[in-house]
Amino acid sequence: MSEPPKNTAKIEIRSLRKSFGSNEVLKNISLDVAKGGVVALIGPSGSGKSTLLRCINLLVVPDGGSVRVGDTSFQFGEGAKLPDVKTLAKFRTTTGMVFQHFNLFPHMTTLQNVMEGPVTVRRMAKADAEKLARAQLAKVGLAEKADQYPATLSGGQKQRVAIARALAMEPDVMLFDEATSALDPELVGEVLAVMQRLASEGMTMVIVTHEIAFAREVADRLIFMRDGVVVEEGPARQVIDNPQEAATRAFLSHFHRTGALPPANAAP
């Protein structure tokens, strides 16, 4: 299952294929993310970008190709044995994920949400996990919300808790699946600010987003997908400011590409 990394890339995806029924969502996708790199995945809905992201932590199991994160790699397709649930679970401890709809655990307080991974998965002592969780909550500016339930928080606060929950596992890479798409416009900024700081601290990140200005500012590479293939990729600024493909140009014409990021009012 494990093999030493062949190059410096933290995430390496080769010839990835995935179909849902007769619908081929990913057609031979390859992708490298350098250690500490930030890659933005953009594209119209149905382009396969969310599926690709979910293949990185194997929430979606690919039909073919290979996925490597750090030292762990998996092969899929003819003759390849599907990884068992224990292997999958262990692998996912190294990849944090943030969802469009937050998916916080409603029956737990904010603090318990963030402690849940360390306690249940990493078998950390409650006291240590609490210390870690409080530190993560403070980092996203929500230390004082520790004892509240998710239902009492705003969307932006929920998403920051979700980020803290993922970070509490101390993952090697962070995956963001349209983390700001479900937020009211005035709450987008506080979440982007947290993500931006995480990127500047050297976290390896893959971000599915519709925030083109944010991608331009924070991502070092940008990948434009359509219909399950990578249409164009390159340095984020270069692709956004000067797209080479007609499809990329057409897609980007729907967005303001530059300008200030949304203000991060509530961020620390």
Binding site: N57, T93, G96, F99, V121, R165
Partner: peptide, 9 residues
């Protein structure tokens, strides 16, 4: 899914 993403079985 959120549980699985944290590494839960």
């Amino acid at each position: 899914e959120a549980g699985a993403a944290l590494g839960m079985t």
